[in-house]
């Protein structure tokens, strides 16, 4: 990328419109977890709309245990140099110092992520303080709205990262989309009760009642491992997919990546999804939820 950036005579950066706007541009796309520049290139070649730079994909974090932290800045900078698409990176929940470091590296989106070990058991990052936009995970509508009230500009349903099992992603999506529908038919008095029940700001509940959708783009993450999974979550109302371990833990990452990209675009056309699902080799092995020692989705409040 050329560095001789031109400066407009008057401009405002970091506005809500600019921050949510980048999430709008990613709609219908696939954001892929990558751990090195080579994987980032494979992701870009396959048509990813963005990459998430991290040191270990969630399934390895699960296997290795220990404290999972922000990635080495050098690795993030190398990935930024390798691709022209947006580069995201993860900070621990509540760890605003990690977020400050990522912002100083000019990452395009910061994921305040439950996949890393939380740094604060009560508070999430005050995301209004940053010019760089944030994405946060949510298991239900209340959690999504609390994150939005803290300044998140994109929500992803959490699912259960690193499992290759889509069941939790489906549960979280259905919960969020279901409550949005119910609020859409609630009368004005009931909105107060919804705000109380969801522990969410009344203004955001009222906005949902008016528009029938979340105030920010709603993507899906955590367990997508096949093109069919991508089609499923898109049909359930997700606007884009995050795929973590599902690509680089499959037997043919290049082919799997591209197949998931095409299935995300043509999610409602089963003949396309069937075509791209053919001859993919093995998907990641995946885990049964009952066998998990740590439920990442339970992190965050």
């Amino acid at each position: 990328m050329s560095t001789d950036a031109i400066i407009p005579s008057s401009r405002t950066t970091g506005t809500v419109r600019v921050k949510r706007g980048l999430a709008d541009m990613l709609r219908g796309g696939v954001i892929m977890d990558v751990v090195n520049p080579m994987q980032a290139k494979i992701a870009e070649d396959a048509g990813a709309v963005a990459v998430m730079a991290l040191e270990r994909v969630p399934s390895d974090i699960r296997r290795d245990g220990g404290v999972a932290r922000m990635s080495d800045p050098e690795m993030i900078v190398e990935i930024q140099a390798a691709v022209s698409i947006p580069v995201m990176a993860k900070a621990r929940i509540g760890h605003f110092a990690e977020a400050q470091i990522l912002a100083s590296l000019d990452v395009d989106y910061i994921d305040e992520s439950e996949v890393l070990t939380p740094a604060d058991e009560a508070n999430h990052i005050d995301k209004w303080n940053f010019d760089v936009p944030f994405v946060c995970g949510a298991t239900n509508l209340g959690e999504a709205l609390r994150r939005i009230s803290e300044g998140a500009c994109m929500i992803r349903s959490k699912g259960e990262a690193g499992t290759g099992n889509v069941v939790e992603a489906v549960r979280h999506l259905r919960s969020i989309m279901g409550d949005i529908k119910k609020i859409g038919v609630a009368d004005e008095v009931e909105l107060y009760q919804w705000a109380k029940e969801l522990r969410a700001p009344l203004e955001l509940i009222q906005e949902i009642a008016e528009t029938g959708s979340l105030p920010v783009p709603m993507f899906c993450a955590g367990g997508i491992a096949t093109p069919a999974d991508a089609s499923l979550v898109m049909q359930l109302g997700a606007e884009a997919c995050f795929v973590g371990s599902g690509i680089f833990k499959s037997s043919q990452p290049e082919i799997m990546a591209r197949a998931i990209v095409e299935a995300t675009t043509h999610y409602e056309d089963a003949s396309v999804v069937a075509k791209v699902s053919t001859g993919l080799g093995e998907a990641m092995k995946g885990l049964e939820l009952a066998t998990l020692e740590t439920r990442l989705a339970e992190r965050g409040w």
Binding site: R11, T12, R17, V18, G21, L22, M25, D108, P133
Partner: peptide, 26 residues
């Protein structure tokens, strides 16, 4: 530049009349 430099401003499009609010994203 990258997302941090995405901005809002107004641009001049004389054939369409008054200045126009414009959002530039990457």
């Amino acid at each position: 530049g990258r997302q941090r430099f995405s901005f809002e401003t107004s641009v001049e499009i004389p054939s369409l009349g008054s200045p126009m609010e414009a959002v530039f994203i990457r």
